[in-house]
Nucleic acid binder design. Sequence first.
DNA 1: CGTGATCTTGAGGGAATTCAATGTCGGTGG
DNA 2: CCACCGACATTGAATTCCCTCAAGATCACG
Lengths: 216, 216
Amino acid sequence: MMKVLANLIEEMGATIPFPRGAAIYRESDPASYLYKVAAGTVRSFKTLNNGRRQIGAFYLPGDIFGLEAGEFSAEAITDAKLLMIERKALVALAARDNDVAHQLWSLTSRELRRVQNHVLLLIQSAQERVAGFLLEMADRVPAGGEIELPMPRQDVADYLGLTIETVSRTLTHLERRGAITLPTSRRVVHCRSALNQINAESGWQLRGTTGQACYQ
Amino acid sequence: MMKVLANLIEEMGATIPFPRGAAIYRESDPASYLYKVAAGTVRSFKTLNNGRRQIGAFYLPGDIFGLEAGEFSAEAITDAKLLMIERKALVALAARDNDVAHQLWSLTSRELRRVQNHVLLLIQSAQERVAGFLLEMADRVPAGGEIELPMPRQDVADYLGLTIETVSRTLTHLERRGAITLPTSRRVVHCRSALNQINAESGWQLRGTTGQACYQ
DNA sequence: CGTGATCTTGAGGGAATTCAATGTCGGTGG
DNA sequence: CCACCGACATTGAATTCCCTCAAGATCACG
């Protein structure tokens, strides 16, 4: 029977509660643990020398994270429960068990693909970034047609490389366009096809040619 | 004696020449090989639905690449010689040899860190992006104080999420500032400390007040 | 009901893009 | 050898998009 990483963490790890805002690890810390989110939401981020903050990822229930520890910091966005397992233990296990080794590799590969997609988000227009972000979140939470954002606007902004004002404006703009509705500031009822269309539309228009109907 | 991945590729792989501009693999291809650059330069990129192109990485002699195959395409920027090895063969070897498994993981982790740094580049101002790019290249090629860029401006632009005009203007701007000299358009004599200073300067300054403890 | 945190909206300015034209370099053929 | 060509690069003018600064609105909570 193959050992599944997620299960291993549950069997071998301890569950620790982190209150809203609590630090899980810091950039300066040695990377000692891997984590699985049992409940709540986590942000992984880096603070640049100029004081700005870049959020590298949001981790939701079920996600495993901590691979980027040592480079990034992590904090609980909401009250959270985390399963923790020592990296040492996993690496030792991987040395004896190929399944585990392979899954550590897979996990890293998945993370790599995630960051590559993040790059693709960051080169687009504000509208496309926000639309892309909403689609990403919609894919990750079960509920159909509606998302409850666990993070404040500032976190969204720092994830997308925008300002909080631009995020806010863009959301109302998307609402006016009919791509989403905002019953409350954190709840987003979305029209997936409309959001997809925005991404297909090419924010700064395809140079030269037709370039119609962007931003109204 | 531990098996070193780079050596394995050389021992087990075949050397293939690729002329300037030749495709190495395409996004649609199955990811069958890992490559090591013996000579020349390679670009890995993705073409977005709107026609724009994002370059994910440049690979120089000595670099191993191909992990992102299946998601990205790769082309030779200059005439290149590549060592190729089947992924299958490596994965099979990894199943028996922990060293190999561990190195495949390390390679992926390094790539992950590289892409994370790319994200940090992309959220900065044009000047910082170009300065950061030059510093990155300077770190990767041996010669001290001078770089020979193997890629055209368009590639630099697509790597940095800028237009070719902005890259060009920014380079002349850096030259006027005294951070670099451009004997020819592809050769860059750089002053590392000046470039570093530009990055420290924070293109867009920290907003608001003292930059204390926002986000709790 | 006030207080602070979060979010939205507006006005103005700056930075990068777009469009367009000119400049440079290496190669090829007259 | 030089004129011409195409690929690559630089520069300028106008525009667009996003940021900055500032004020107001909304929400949660004591």
